[in-house]
Write a protein that binds this DNA or RNA. Structure first.
Length: 428
RNA sequence: GGAAAGGUGGCUGAGUGGUCGAAAGCGCCGGACUCGAAAUCCGGUGUACGGUUCUCCGUACCGUGGGUUCGAAUCCCACCCUUUCCGCCA
C-alpha cells in the first residue's frame, strides 16, 4: 500500500511512476474520494466534539443535582446527524482503503523501463554453460530414465502439475534444501524459521496477495464462513511475524530463512511449462526474509541477492542476474532481481530465484514498525528472495550434471549432505 | 469438543456508566544534586487520523465487531485469542 500522504502531496508524480508498470492511477477518482472524505470527516468530528461536551455538561449538572432534561433533548437531536455522518465516514474510508489496496508499489528510480520480460536488464553473468559431447536430455527424460521421477503416478494421485520423486532423486531434493539452510544459517547469519503453511486472510493482505490475487491461491474452508489460505511462498508467514509489531532497534535487522512447501493454483498459466516440474501446484522453496531500516534496504537487497547467488555458485550452476523492468515486477515490489539458471534441456536461462525490496509497501499494510533512534515507531522495509526454489534447483542439477549414460553426477558441494554419494543412477 | 478464568499503554497492574487517554509502580528521556556514577528529588514520556501549521486544537483507539445510553474501558450480544482442567489425538 502506498502512503496516502505522499499521494496527497504529489499525485501526479505517483501517477507518472506507476505508468511505467503500466498502471493507470485514476487521479480524478482519488481526488473526488479525498474531497468527500475531508468534508465528511470534518463534519463528523465537529459533531462528535459537540456531543462530547454536551455529555460532559450533563454529567456535571447531574452531579450538582440540576435539571438536565433540556440538555438531554438537545443531545438527542444532534445524534441523528452524527449517526448518519459516522456511517458515511466509515463508507468513504472503506472506499479509499479499497482504492489504495489495489495500487501497486512505485518502481524504484533504478528500475529499468519496459513492459515485459524482454525489457529486463542483465546485470551480470556467472559461470559458462557446459559443452556436451552427447545429445542432452531434459530433466523429465533424465528422471524418468533413472526411474525416479514419475508424473503419471503423480497425476493419478492428484492431477496435473504435481510430481512424484523416489529414491536417490527424492533424497537429493531433500539434501538441496538442507544444504541451502546450512549455508544461510551458518554463513549468512539468518535465523531458521518453521512457520505455518495455512494462514489467515490478514496475513495474505499484509504481504499483498490479497485482495487482488485470490485466484492464485489455494484455500481450505474453516468454520462457518472463514478459510485458511495455503501459502504460495514462505514470504507470507515469515514476513507477517512482524505484523502489528514494533521491533526494538537493537534487534534490527531481522534475517529469517524458512524452508517450506509452496502452493500455487497457477490460474492463468494454462499451457505454460506443462512439461516437467518447472511449474507445479506444490513445490519446496528456501526463502530469505529481511526486516530492515529504510535507509539500509537497498544495500540489503544487494546482500540478499548475493546470498541467493552463493547457492548457485557453490553448486557450480551457470546463471545470470536480471534487473526486472517495471512492467515485469510483482505488485508489491519496488525493485526485483531475478536469478536465472542455465538449463541445458531448454537451452535457456530460467528463473530460479526472485529477490525483491518492498520498501514500506508491505510494512504499511501490516503496520510493521521499529523504534527508531528517536524512540519513535517507524515503518520497516521488508525484503525477500528465494534461495532457492528447491525443485527448480534439482532440475538445474539434473540437466547440468547429466552424463551420457543417463546418470547424474552429484555436485561436490552437495556430497556431504548425501553421505558422500558421487553419482545417482538407475537403481541407486 | 466440554468447563472455568481472563484479554487495559513498552512492562506489571488499578479502574464495573460521567471532568478516564485512563491511577500507581517499573522502564525510558530531560533536569537538579555529584569530580563522575549510584541513590534521591523534580519534570516529561502511547498510537493513528484530521484541521491548523511548526504552535496549538479536535477526533478515534482499553482483544475484534455490533448493541443499549445524552454519555461505555465499565452494561448487553456475537466472535477471536490466552491460561487452567477434562475429553480426543499426530
Amino acid at each position: 500500500m502506498l502512503d496516502i500522504q505522499s499521494l496527497r502531496n504529489d499525485l501526479e508524480g505517483a501517477a507518472n511512476r506507476l505508468a511505467a508498470r503500466p498502471f493507470h492511477l485514476d487521479a480524478a477518482a482519488f481526488q473526488a474520494l479525498e474531497q468527500e472524505r475531508k468534508l465528511v470527516q470534518t463534519r463528523t468530528q465537529e459533531l462528535q466534539a459537540a456531543r462530547n461536551s454536551l455529555a460532559k455538561r450533563i454529567g456535571q449538572a447531574k452531579g450538582k443535582g440540576e435539571d438536565v432534561s433540556a440538555l438531554m433533548r438537545e443531545a438527542g437531536e444532534a445524534n441523528a446527524e452524527l449517526q448518519s455522518m459516522e456511517a458515511k465516514l466509515l463508507q468513504v474510508q472503506a472506499r479509499l482503503q479499497d482504492f489504495l489496496l489495489l495500487i501497486p508499489n512505485l518502481p524504484h528510480a533504478s528500475v529499468p523501463p519496459g513492459r515485459s520480460a524482454e525489457d529486463n536488464a542483465e546485470v551480470r553473468r556467472h559461470g559458462t554453460p557446459r559443452q556436451f559431447d552427447f545429445a542432452v536430455k531434459d530433466h523429465v527424460d533424465i528422471g524418468e530414465g533413472m526411474g525416479m521421477l514419475d508424473f503419471a503416478t503423480a497425476t493419478k494421485i492428484s492431477g496435473a502439475r504435481f510430481s512424484l520423486m523416489t529414491g536417490a532423486l527424492a533424497r537429493m531434493h531433500r539434501a538441496l534444501a538442507q544444504f541451502m539452510l546450512e549455508v544461510h544459517t551458518q554463513e549468512h547469519g539468518y535465523t531458521e524459521v518453521y512457520a505455518p503453511y495455512l494462514v489467515n486472510a490478514a496475513s495474505m493482505r499484509g504481504t499483498g496477495q490479497l485482495p487482488k490475487f485470490e485466484e492464485d491461491l489455494f484455500a481450505v474452508p474453516r468454520g462457518e464462513e472463514g478459510k485458511f489460505y495455503l501459502i504460495p511462498t514462505a514470504e507470507v508467514p515469515v514476513t507477517n511475524i512482524v505484523r502489528d509489531e514494533i521491533v526494538p532497534l537493537d534487534r534490527m535487522p531481522l534475517k529469517f530463512v524458512c524452508h517450506s512447501p509452496c502452493f500455487r493454483s497457477e490460474a492463468g498459466s494454462y499451457g505454460k511449462d506443462t512439461r516437467g516440474m518447472i511449474r507445479q501446484h506444490q513445490f519446496d522453496k528456501v526463502e530469505l526474509v529481511q526486516i530492515v531500516q529504510p535507509e539500509k534496504s537497498y544495500d540489503s537487497l544487494e546482500q540478499l541477492t548475493g546470498h541467493a547467488e552463493t547457492i548457485l555458485q557453490r553448486l557450480e550452476l551457470p546463471y545470470r542476474v536480471m534487473a526486472l523492468c517495471a512492467g515485469d515486477m510483482g505488485f508489491s515490489a519496488a525493485k526485483t532481481y531475478d536469478l536465472e539458471v542455465w538449463l541445458p534441456g531448454q537451452n535457456a536461462y530460467r528463473e530460479i530465484s526472485s529477490c525483491s525490496n518492498f520498501e514500506a509497501f508491505q510494512a504499511r499494510r501490516m503496520q510493521a514498525r521499529f523504534r527508531n533512534e528517536k524512540g519513535k515507531p517507524e515503518l520497516v522495509h521488508t525484503l525477500n528472495g528465494s534461495a532457492l526454489a528447491v525443485g527448480r534447483t534439482l532440475v538445474a542439477v539434473m540437466e547440468n550434471y547429466q552424463n551420457a549414460d543417463g546418470s547424474v553426477t552429484v555436485p561436490a558441494a552437495l556430497r556431504p549432505h548425501l553421505g558422500g554419494l558421487e553419482r545417482i543412477a538407475r537403481g541407486s
